[in-house]
Write a protein that binds this DNA or RNA. Structure first.
Lengths: 229, 229
DNA sequence: AATTACAATAATGTCGACATTTTACTCTTT
DNA sequence: AAAGAGTAAAATGTCGACATTATTGTAATT
């Protein structure tokens, strides 16, 4: 069992927080498979901490529904299902549309500038998509976050982030197979451009429609992929 | 320091889960005040468990943002603020409106029947409002849940529940002062009746408007109450 | 008298150990 | 050979103890 580099560790946080982040990544990226049993001995070895911080980290992921617990039978990675995926993506589309609606109402010049800046950083990286998919994913997410943050509601953005993380499990399982499909990717880029246009024109109805399509198309593609049920 | 009765303890769950529920109640009801320090010795005494389950329970509430943690300085109850309250209520109004919108689209006869049943149980209890406010609160919540559950989306309902719990902290601080204001209460009852009408008529626009008013009026009243800032 | 340095107290974060429960395996019986 | 009981092994859940860090109180110095 290989250990994991502790590069992103925040030395100000306690072990539990650090392990929580690493464990979350390992689940989201698929290192730990859906439904897989999380044995303490193995986790101890991987993250190099004792049982107490591990249980704390797992408890936190429990609330986010990334792991499940059966009494006296330890923890497992939350299983995936077609139904849950559709439900998450659907809900996420509604929440994202809500964020955008409010952002168009409330957003100021700084908001618009932030969107264009994030879009630029994303486009600049599009040629490196295949080389560093992780960084591209980060910039893609930053772009959409820049849009949503215009709603200026911490509570709503917290909900949004939680749904994003849950969805990324499914997306990561999908990306591995469809990462190199440049046709899908180009369509994606065009959708981004249309979305920016709608936002700058304060066309809320159009923006809602675009973001819904943008978010839901991956879930439809994912449905046709093998490995479910 | 008094101990707390362990009546609702699910013997199937581990200590951490049980303590989590009790601690959540104690925070929501205001037994532990906003910003108050949660010393381990005191919690140990109150819930009669060791440190490990306590830390697990606190870790779970951490994600739900009901407690905060400062490294090496223990846990505190999440502080309250006027801004956060308004943000939570506002977000909650949007989410609830979304649930209702979907419920009207998707709801069937069973959904309508469930609403009427819950409304009946709530009305039957209205005379006991002052005697058993806790049970009335439960039925009121059950009524609104019956409506929202028509959206048939576990993910969206999970979000809704989380926001409801955060809001109830503020509501509980408020209820103690306004519980006996029968004028407000009567208006509340009328709002429920209008809402049911709109739902059964599948009038989504009207229902959205009503639920928004129903949810936001407490937060406006709460704003005029002392004890903030 | 106020401020800083220092010491004592208290509280937190982590680990290993123990008891309990679950799981796996073997041996017996039909 | 298959099924079931009994036993051995492994994993979990909880607790107390220890080291580290923060807080409080006191004394000394300017």
């Amino acid at each position: 069992m290989q250990e994991v580099a502790n590069s992103t560790a925040d030395s100000k946080d306690n072990f539990a927080s650090q392990v929580m982040g690493q464990l979350k990544q390992d689940i989201l990226t698929g290192y730990f498979k859906p439904g897989e049993k999380l044995r303490m001995a193995r986790l101890k070895e991987r993250y190099q901490v004792g049982i107490s911080p591990l249980r704390e980290a797992l408890s936190q992921l429990l609330i986010e529904q990334l792991v499940i617990v059966e009494n006296q039978r330890g923890f497992r990675v939350h299983p995936i299902s077609k139904e849950e995926m559709l439900d998450i993506y659907e809900t996420r589309a509604y929440i994202e549309a809500l964020c955008i609606n409010l952002a168009i109402e409330r957003g100021d010049d700084e908001w618009e500038a932030g969107i264009l800046a994030a879009a630029h950083k994303m486009r600049k990286f599009s040629t490196l998509l295949e080389k560093e998919p992780h960084e591209w994913e980060r910039r893609h997410q930053a772009f959409h976050s820049a849009i949503a943050e215009g709603c200026q509601s911490p509570t709503l953005l917290h909900v949004r982030r939680s749904l994003y993380e849950k969805a990324s499990r499914y997306r990561n399982l999908w990306l591995k197979k469809n990462m190199l499909d440049s046709q899908i990717f180009d369509a994606n880029q065009k959708e981004h451009d249309s979305l920016i246009d709608a936002l700058l024109n304060h066309d809320a109805g159009k923006a809602r429609e675009l973001i819904r399509e943008h978010l839901l198309s991956p879930s439809r593609t994912l449905l046709t992929t093998e490995g479910f049920e």
